[in-house]
Design a protein around this nucleic acid. Structure first.
Lengths: 162, 162
DNA sequence: TATTGTTATACTCTATAACTATA
DNA sequence: TATAGTTATAGAGTATAACAATA
């Protein structure tokens, strides 16, 4: 067995899902950002297994709770995704009776999206999961939260969407 | 036009790729984590367009540079992914002459993976891109870097790989 | 029986390009 | 011509289950 293989065998944790952090990644912000976001997203996703909604749908419902009556194009701007990515989400939400589409009388090509009463209830339910998740993260981060959010926002501002 | 639609129209930035941050997400760590990781990863990916390698391959090359001679299973433990996800990556690296597979004389089922000289050169080249990206992030984060990495590591430790 | 690497398959998230129907 | 929404397609990243070869 090579020395490298030995190092792998001597993983610090007890179970085989633990992973080493290669030395080349130890002080790399991008690496830690990626791994932290991954575990955070997975923890949130796990909570949503009780529902039949995909994790990404929560943000759409929440945007609609805040900006009621947006068109798909407007919605795509708010969430920063291409409008084509919204089609299947809106279909899924519509099939479940969580949103309704209202034809725009001034432009036959377009329509506005509104939460139904059921949609509002579901948004509230998912929001409760999200808040539980947030509280967990807040507890982990502690008093550094404001600083953390500021740093992350700075990264987004500096690297942009380009 | 609804008031929500007006808010969208009055997006702060000049170009249409800017996105609002819905109030419900403003103080949510998970949201900022996701967006920051996304722009960071995209910035790094953009640098790798000069090569014919996928962004994820850099980490495999770098792990091999550090732990030479791992088997695919060992490699999968180090990078924390299922071993089936490595097959196509190893094939891609092998086709390009960046790694070589050495049959394990003690176990005919297995083999060890080594970087070729070309592989080492390519790893160094990608590592230079990564370092450039890291320097950018370091400049953005500034003196808070140690604290940031500590917080992110804490999140990973607390939420685990669940 | 258990493990190794591979294959087949599937799912999430995303994007681009082309299509349609309007404008 | 340009825009709104949709469709078709693709690609990166991931996972599970099953398979053949070997242990």
């Amino acid at each position: 067995m090579t020395s490298a293989a030995k190092a792998v065998e001597e993983l610090p944790g007890q179970n085989e899902t633990d992973s080493l952090i290669p030395a080349a990644f130890r002080d790399v912000i991008g690496y830690h950002l990626r791994v932290a976001q991954e575990v955070s997203f997975q923890a949130f996703s796990a909570m949503l297994e009780k529902t039949d909604l995909k994790p990404g749908w929560y943000s759409i419902l929440t945007i609609l709770a805040e900006y009621d009556g947006l068109t798909p194009s407007e919605l795509s701007k708010v969430c920063g995704r291409d409008r084509s990515t919204l089609t299947s989400t809106l279909k899924g939400l519509s099939i479940r009776g969580l949103i309704e589409r209202r034809q725009n009388p001034d432009d036959q090509r377009s329509y506005s999206v509104r939460l139904t009463d059921e949609g509002r209830k579901m948004q509230a339910r998912l929001h409760a999961f999200a808040q539980e998740h947030d509280r967990r993260l807040d507890a982990i981060v502690g008093e550094d939260k404001e600083a953390l959010v500021a740093i992350l926002a700075r990264i987004v501002g500096a690297l942009g969407k380009g």
